[in-house]
Design a protein around this nucleic acid. Structure first.
Lengths: 342, 342
DNA sequence: CTGAAAGCGCTTACAG
DNA sequence: CTGAAAGCGCTTACAG
């Protein structure tokens, strides 16, 4: 089998389509079609080709395939950060769904910066990805055009939209923010602070939900919002907890925009001997690892990032195969998780 | 510029090497060489070519390049899990180092199973990765052969070895395990339990360090080892903490093989009213997020996974460029972080 | 339903 | 130091 190969100077030593074709006694195109499952090939031939491919241990060359078809087997996934476990869960779900379907996941980290995302997009598009997964809708005009003009199937995650032609899987961050605030109100809390970091678009949507709930209850007080642009972290949560208590000792509940902040707040409360929920109720967002094990366990909003990852990947697979997609906008909802901190 | 392109039926609309060559008035090969920085091209030509490429917005086609050169711009990174922040830190450092050098990171999750790693390797090798990053040395014979026979540069991370021809960046898990145990001994602890989960090779190396330290002190007691094969987690740490206390109420210190277990243990102690370190000292491993904020703050071993990721990526870059590598085995050490839990 | 030809956009040898 | 030719391993469009 290596005789033919060794004659050519630049042979890679790979088993090629030609080798399989020779072994099966058909033309290379037929092998290509049979292996890709194009229906136009006779059943008996398909079997013969598959047997030959199997016997020779043939593995298609992704580079050759990408060059000829103008489409690779890569899916670029653009997320803000890896240090937020939310996105790790999402990424893992996407990866787990795409791999068995024959697609590789390329990660891109945007650090919450539209300009960085634009640069990543620019370089990733050169790879002719088969598909694209992006976080939310906040991007530069250039990035938007790049995606649209490329014709590469794209699914947006974490938020929803009903703009025509847009594919997305997420939930309403605003509604979820409103729901958890309403829960605090239902517990009789009246001076509810909103403490946030990072201040990305989704955080601000939660803020909007918080505001609506308080406006509806005639309890909105702009002074109860503590918005910090730094990265979200346990440590920052502790500091912000202390800052709220210092600035507004009358606050009877705190809604942290993310669980890591809330966990930090809870730890700070323990350290300071502040009783939760008696003195102040604490709620978080996302239901991250450890929230159920805090003291007291943290009330939060469970967000379906694993399901979002899976559904978005499935939707993308359909788009990449040019199959019809039942619904182009999927709202997967959220779930209040009431524990002892409220 | 599209006249030439539109004549060809299958044109991708891309700006190609030929377009640049035409614009610069040289042959395509010269453009290829100039852009890749091959020294054999005249300085004046290089400038002209670069200007033309810039003007046309030329971006090389990775698929074509991979096909022609038999080498892609992808680096496959095989790690056990994404849910352990240790590996997220590692992955992020690798990604951050490789991207500016023009390499894309492909993630592979092995779930700590050599057989899964072997299958991943099989499929990733078809992509002709430019380089490979793998975790530790525990793999199937087939996987080992696949790597060796492929000729793809490979760097091993997290452990060290002085086997000839092996490239690795890590530290001695055994020594680190010994050091933290010796610290507990130096604090006057005598009945020190070792509590572990996952039981992967690196965990067992830490166990070995623990045993050596206790043997040296004539305090080794096999009954003080609690080895649980389940995945490491906060919740499991809590359970194992309780189990140790139940089985051996005389234990005066616990060395958890990972910080998530230790944090879970600390939270369980808080819940149960067990005083740390008075009643029992608690030490962890890895210095993960939040360990410094526990109550009390957790004594642990800081492991240099970020530096490991950076150095391993640098070493891989050298290997991929066929540059000489100063040292093929890098021991980046570890650092005891003594806090209030011991 | 099957195939011969051409082409995807680069790089590798081989010349000069 | 520069170039013409061939080839990497596939798939696309055009025939039959």
């Amino acid at each position: 089998m290596s005789t033919a190969a060794s004659k050519r100077g630049r042979s890679s030593g790979r088993v090629t389509l030609n080798d399989v074709a020779e072994a099966a006694g058909v033309s290379p195109i037929t092998v290509s079609r049979a292996l890709r499952g194009e229906r136009s090939v006779g059943a008996e031939l398909v079997e013969r080709v598959q047997a030959a491919a199997q016997a020779l241990g043939y593995v298609p060359d992704p580079a050759a395939r990408a060059l000829a078809s103008q489409r690779s087997s890569h899916v670029a996934v653009l997320i803000p950060l890896l240090s937020n476990t939310l996105f790790v869960d999402l990424l893992e779900a996407v990866h787990r769904t795409l791999l068995p379907a024959g697609f590789q996941t390329l990660i891109g980290i945007t650090h919450y910066k539209p300009k960085e995302e634009e640069l990543l997009l620019q370089s990733y598009m050169a790879h002719r990805p088969a598909g694209l997964l992006v976080t939310g809708f906040d991007r530069t005009e250039t990035a938007r055009r790049l995606i649209a003009s490329s014709g590469v199937p794209c699914v947006h995650v974490m938020e929803t939209s009903d703009a025509p032609g847009v594919h997305c899987v997420g939930f309403s961050q605003m509604e979820a923010g409103r729901a958890i605030t309403q829960h605090l109100l239902s517990r009789g809390r009246r001076r509810i602070a909103f403490v946030a970091a990072q201040l990305d678009p989704r955080v601000m949507q939660r803020a909007e939900g918080y505001r609506r709930a308080l406006h509806e209850a005639n309890l909105y007080d702009a002074d109860l919002e503590l918005l910090n642009p730094d990265s979200s972290s346990l440590g920052l949560g502790g500091h912000l907890f202390e800052e709220v208590r210092r600035r507004r000792p009358d606050v009877d509940a705190i809604f942290f925009c993310n669980d890591d902040l809330a966990q930090g707040g809870l730890l700070a409360a323990l350290r300071l001997g502040v009783k939760v929920p008696q003195e102040v109720a604490v709620a978080g967002f996302n239901d991250l690892t450890g929230s159920d094990l805090m003291l007291p366990p943290l009330t939060t909003v469970h967000t379906p990032r694993v399901e979002i990852g899976e559904c978005a990947a499935q939707m993308l697979l359909s788009l990449m195969r040019r199959e019809p997609v039942a619904r182009s906008s999927l709202d997967l909802g959220y779930r209040l998780v009431i524990r002892e901190s409220t």
